[in-house]
Design a protein around this nucleic acid. Structure first.
Length: 491
RNA sequence: GGCCCGUUCGUCUAGCGGUUAGGACAUCGCCCUCUCAAGGCGAAGAUCACCAGUUCGAAUCUGGUACGGGCUACCA
């Protein structure tokens, strides 16, 4: 809650455009977004594209599209701007450079001319003598700054390292989820903040940007917890106050290993393409590592935006369970009204499948509302409606061979179809209820089981042993096709 | 190797010193029923990773062990 003493939070989601938006990243984005919305804060989107080798413009677009699909709107960032831009790290290099130069001149950073080979050899030696400290041996720390500067200016290849004060002592990180975490001072080495090619490193940019963008809460994956002391050191060198941290647990596959390609679909666009509802998807992801009260599983985004709190994020990693996601998706589909379902699900799906033309729903809302009513409880995913309603399109229906053998080539099947035909021929109005009423006495009159009787009609009309209820299905087909399909099945 | 984090039903979780350890998904059964779903009811499923300790009392606090994960890059 924003109070006069604590300014409104500013949080950020900072993906690296080196691939699609991953399920884990999406969850981090959701937490940040929900926290901002629930606290009246600001949600910033920042693109961390400092690695030109792996970052692409296309990936950035893919991520942005995925964010929009999820409905995670950002208050500042690419495409929307903001007072703390630019929001793409590749456009901020001059700023980083300025800070690096400042640290250099203040003696808080220094040039290092060690070759990769030497560094590797040092590491090897440290390993060999079982030295618990395997970091950089601080070789170049002792070079006279003026001399180092001259060598660098002369073009000698070098990086810039942060000069971690030798008397720094242990680094304490207060994490909103994990509590106080202490890192042994001896473990921290003088890490690189600017590479040989002049580009700044991640641990430096994050700090520079989080500070510049006035981020108050850094909410990110658990995998960054170990990097946090390094970043704290950068804050200190820069003379800045670190923000609050909240390291959220990872999302794993069924084998409890970090979610990866091996586990199947891992990018949000894959789930989108499968036909998942973004509302359900966000709901499900929010529940991975966060809970409203331990009882509620259906948490619509309005509730999430109102009730989300960092305090209720759990510490332990969560296994992604597609079954529960599917169930939740079905819940969201069923929550729609018939009209919504018709417009938002049936329309797009049937058009995409080529079964109806654009505008068909608007042209016959009553027909589609009835279809929605019978399909809603049967569809777990939007695309399911295509298979479930295919029999309604076209004059004839393709009859499944197994179904034919089981229901139409049985003793009495012909009689059932005959009787149904007679009962429906003059039926008016041709509605589900009337159809049910007309058929209801027939099994007994024919001396057949209801099951055999109805299955014969079902297969004749829908081509399958499983279908939506017969009454409404036949109403949707209309009398002419109902009769012609009965005729066809009797031939 | 070193450092850091984590560990409650198969899965997501509630729990924050005293509960028959609660809910949800999945599973199974029953009901509804012309099929398939949906829905209703119910069952099963967790010696709270393990071992010590603190306490009258511990899933909850402390220490250790085991297992899992992360970091240890001129990736982010």
């Amino acid at each position: 809650m924003p109070t006069p003493s604590s300014p409104a939070p500013r949080v950020r989601f900072a993906p690296s455009p080196t691939g699609k938006l991953h399920v884990g990243g999406a969850r981090t984005a959701i937490f940040n977004w929900a926290f901002a919305r629930a606290s009246g804060g600001t949600f910033v989107l920042r693109i961390e594209d400092t690695d030109p080798e792996r970052s692409t413009e296309e990936n950035e677009q893919v991520i942005i599209r995925a964010m929009r699909w999820l409905g995670l709107d950002w208050d500042e960032g690419p495409e929307v701007g903001g007072a703390f831009g630019p929001y793409r790290q590749s456009e901020r290099f001059a700023r980083y450079d300025e800070l690096v130069e400042r640290l250099l001149s203040e003696g808080k950073a220094y040039y290092c001319f060690c070759s990769p080979e030497k560094l590797e050899a040092d590491r090897e030696a440290a390993r060999a003598r079982k030295d618990p400290f395997q970091g950089y041996q601080r070789t170049c720390r002792s070079i006279d700054p003026a001399e180092a500067k001259a060598r660098a200016a002369a073009g000698e290849p070098c990086v810039v390292r942060l000069k971690v004060p030798l008397d720094r002592g242990d680094v304490h990180v207060h994490d909103l989820i994990h509590g106080d975490v202490t890192f042994n001072a001896k473990e921290l080495d003088d890490f690189v903040i600017r590479r040989t090619d002049g580009t700044p490193t991640y641990n430096f940019c994050v700090v520079a940007d989080d500070a510049a963008m006035k981020i108050t809460h850094v909410v990110r994956g658990d995998d960054h917890l170990s990097n946090t002391p390094r970043q704290v050191l950068v804050y200190e060198a820069l003379g800045l106050e670190p923000p609050l941290f909240a390291h959220v647990p990872m999302i794993c596959g069924p084998d409890s290993k970090k979610l990866s390609k091996r586990h199947g679909a891992t990018s949000v666009e894959e789930w989108r393409d499968e036909g998942y509802d973004p509302e359900a998807f966000v709901n499900y992801l929010a529940l991975l590592g966060w809970s409203l009260d331990g009882e509620t599983t259906v948490v619509p985004r309005e509730v999430l935006c109102r009730e989300f709190s960092l305090e209720r994020i759990s510490k332990n990693p969560a296994v992604f369970d597609p079954k529960k996601l599917l169930w939740l998706n079905a819940e969201y589909l069923q929550a729609k009204t018939d009209d919504e379902f018709a417009r938002e699900v049936l329309g797009p799906q049937l058009v995409a499948a080529g079964l109806v033309d654009e505008g068909a729903v608007e042209a016959d809302p009553t027909w589609f509302a009835l279809l929605a009513q019978i399909l809603k409880p049967r569809a777990k995913l939007a695309p399911d409606v295509v298979g479930l309603s295919r029999f309604l399109f076209g004059d004839e229906v393709a009859i499944d061979e197994k179904a034919r053998a089981k229901a139409l080539e049985k003793e009495g099947a012909k009689a059932a179809l005959e009787a149904a035909r007679a009962a429906l021929l003059e039926l008016e109005p041709f509605t589900g209820d009337e159809i049910d009423r007309a058929l209801e006495p027939l099994p007994e009159e024919l001396g057949q089981s209801k099951r055999n009787f109805y299955q014969a009609i079902r297969v004749a009309e829908t081509g399958s042993l499983a279908s939506p209820p017969l009454g409404p299905s036949l109403q949707l087909l209309g009398k002419a096709r109902v009769l012609s399909r009965l005729d066809a099945a009797m031939r």
